[in-house]
Write a protein that binds this DNA or RNA. Structure first.
Length: 154
DNA sequence: GCCAACGTTGGC
DNA sequence: GCCAACGTTGGC
C-alpha cells in the first residue's frame, strides 16, 4: 500500500526548482541527521510513496510540489566526507549510521503556504502543524494527502 | 535576529 | 538512568 510523507527542504539548499532541474528530476535526500527522520526513510518508505515537497526556513514556507520515493534507503555518502557539513566521524563504512532515499519530482504545484494550511480544518491533524514539531520528515495520512491535493487544485 | 521547542550529549 | 547544558530547527 502506498504511503505518504511530508519532507522539508530549505529552498536555499534544495528547492522544488532544483529538483525539477536535477538529472532525472531526482535528488538524493542527503543530510538527514535525525534518527526519527532516518528511521522513516530506512524502515517505512517504499518506492512509489507520495511526497509533499515542503519549503522550510524561508520567506514563504509551504508545500511547493509533489514528488515520489524513487529509490529505497541507502547509505548517505556525505557522512564519510570530511569536507561535508554532514560528515559524521563516528559512522563507519561497515555500519553506516545515516541513510537516505531518492526523491523524484511528480509535479511542481502552486505554493500551498503554511498559513493556508493552518487555516484548513481538513489539515488540522497534520503532524507538521502540531506545536513544536521540527521533524524534517513526517508521515501524512491518505485523508490528509487527499485534502492537500484538493487545496492545491482549488 | 529572536526565541520556543525539541533532540542530543555527557557528567554524575 | 537522570537531567542540565548545549545545539538545532524553523516560524515569525
Amino acid at each position: 500500500m502506498t504511503q505518504f510523507w511530508l519532507m522539508k527542504s530549505e529552498p536555499d539548499e534544495a528547492s522544488i526548482d532544483h529538483l525539477a532541474a536535477a538529472p532525472g528530476q531526482t535528488l538524493p535526500w542527503t543530510g538527514v541527521r535525525n534518527y526519527q527522520a532516518r528511521n522513516f526513510m530506512r524502515d517505512a518508505m517504499r518506492v512509489g510513496d507520495g511526497v509533499l515537497f515542503y519549503h522550510s526556513s524561508c520567506a514563504e514556507p509551504g508545500v511547493a510540489g509533489l514528488a515520489e520515493v524513487a529509490r529505497a534507503a541507502y547509505p548517505d555518502a556525505t557522512q564519510f566526507d570530511p569536507a561535508s557539513p554532514w560528515f559524521d566521524a563516528e559512522s563507519t563504512l561497515a555500519q553506516p549510521r545515516w541513510v537516505h532515499v531518492d526523491v523524484k519530482l511528480v509535479r511542481k504545484t502552486r505554493l500551498l503556504s503554511l498559513r493556508e494550511m493552518r487555516q484548513a480544518p481538513a489539515l488540522s491533524t497534520m503532524l507538521l502543524l502540531k506545536p513544536g514539531n521540527r521533524l524534517s520528515i513526517t508521515p501524512v495520512t491518505p485523508t490528509e494527502w487527499q485534502a492537500v491535493l484538493a487545496l492545491l487544485d482549488a
